[in-house]
Amino acid sequence: MIDVLSWVLLGVGGLLGVIGGIGIHRFPDFYTRLHAAGTTDTLCAILILLGLGFQAGLSLDAFKLFLIFVFLFFTSPTASHALANAAMHGGLKPQLGRENGSGKA
C-alpha cells in the first residue's frame, strides 16, 4: 500500500518536472519562464522527496531527505526572488498583457 503511494508520488513528481521543463521552452519571456521553473522546483521536489521518504521508512535516511526538503523549501523561493529582483534591477522589462493564444510562444 505504502509502496503504491510512493510510486504514485514519484511518478507525478517526475512528470511535473518534465512539464516544467517544457514550460521553460514554451513561455515567451524570462519572468514567465521563472514561473515554470518555480513549478518544478517546488512541487516536483516535494513529491519526489516525499515518495523517497516513504521508501526509506522511519529512519535516519528519511530524516536526511527531510533535511534536503527543508533546505530546498527555504532556498528555492529565495533564489527565484533573487533572480527576479536582479533581472528587474538589470533593466529587463517583463512582457505584460493577455496574449490570446497567438500560437507563437
Partner: peptide, 10 residues
C-alpha cells in the same frame, strides 16, 4: 514565490 504563478520581485 513558493506558490507557482507568482514571484516576488521587489
Amino acid at each position: 514565490t513558493l506558490t507557482p504563478g507568482t514571484v516576488t520581485v521587489e
